[in-house]
Design a protein around this nucleic acid. Structure first.
Lengths: 199, 199
DNA sequence: AAGATAAACGGGCCGCGTTCCGTTTAGCGT
DNA sequence: ACGCTAAACGGAACGCGGCCCGTTTATCTT
């Protein structure tokens, strides 16, 4: 369970020593340099440490793991995006009505993600594999065929991806085991989603 | 681009030498033994090779990588599930009408995935991390709030997960860069999805 | 200012996945 | 039966991520 009152951006480390602050900045600059020069894949713990002129242990201690380092790299643009939909102007911000905000949120998130695409993909291990699994492709085709038959006007391909994502095993395991949600509720949500789409 | 006419289960290696066939079976048995004895996390290339009494190179050559090995372990139950929705009886199979099949597919997939949960999670690297990222949680809360305001009767928590999954960066990058889909189509699909849900 | 203390540092170490290449062997043609 | 060849084998080697622990150093206290 995560404390939802904490600000998500400030990592909130109580007191960071001066040398630690300096090295943190050095490491982020080094990582950005490496990414700009040789692509985000060049962001390895060793290379970043070497580029910054510190030991590997320092990277590990500061950012936890490679993923934490990449998240930290993304923090700046992430906070800009968050500002836009939390306190910004319409159509994303709170001055617009909820429907407008929700409609605008998707495209905004898409553009945000694709602006830092390399880093976001580098944060996910083997991103290409996930959709290359034959069993997944077969399920997608199956669902797409059914959707196409039921909703001729819809983008069946994408809607099938959405439906499958709603019962993705990583998501549902996170909800069921990680947050104690009954599996029956996930099943009910699938039925509800299908009904709303078909109605 | 993948040949969609190929059977997804048979790996279709043209001619596998007798010793290769034997070792393949040995390796799958060894991996299953390890998983049963010490959990799916114990499926490492080295351990499986040692348990089967072959070299690591043999595992690599046969299954490509650790993921391929786990996929091969899942093939049996996967093909049973595929049979159920491709050629089985109602409500999953082709004798039922599309709406019934689609409604039944979600719960069936959920049960299938959670039967082999350990293996499915072992096939995904660091599955827990994905939803622990603060930025992700913030986006989810934001979307859930909007959904709750717009659809009081719905399961806003799960619906928010579904909406976010439809514009997940890994998915959309796969579609845009991997399959040449225009980003505008993904944006249009989001708007269409929201409109269908709100109508 | 000087000592105490906790934090940070460094880089060696281990485990794992993947690659590579010299060696072995199964399958086939003659 | 006998080789020939391509496939398979094995395990050493490499790169990377994460961990650990002896050493260094910033910061606080008095």
């Amino acid at each position: 369970m995560i404390d939802s009152t904490a600000l998500p951006l400030a990592t909130a480390e109580p007191h960071l020593r001066a040398d630690a602050v300096r090295n943190r900045a050095l490491l982020l600059e080094a990582a950005a340099r490496l990414a700009a020069r040789r692509g985000a894949a060049a962001i390895t713990m060793e290379a970043v440490a070497a580029e910054a002129g510190v030991g590997k242990g320092t990277v590990s201690r500061r950012f936890g793991d490679r993923n934490g380092l990449i998240q930290a790299l993304l923090d700046r643009s992430e906070s800009l995006f968050q500002e836009a939909f939390l306190t910004g102007g319409p159509p994303l911000g709170p001055e617009a009505d909820p429907a407008t905000r929700l409609r605008a949120f998707g495209p905004a998130l898409l553009r945000h993600e694709h602006a830092d695409l390399e880093l976001y993909l580098a944060a996910e291990p083997s991103p290409g594999r996930r959709f290359a699994v034959p069993a997944r492709q077969l399920r997608h085709r199956h669902v797409a065929v059914l959707v196409r038959a039921l909703l001729p006007g819809a983008d069946a391909d994408l809607l099938a991806h959405t439906l499958l994502a709603s019962v993705d095993v990583v998501l549902t395991d996170h909800l069921v085991r990680g947050r104690g949600m009954p599996l029956a509720r996930v099943e009910a949500a699938w039925l509800d989603l299908v009904d709303r789409l078909l109605s």
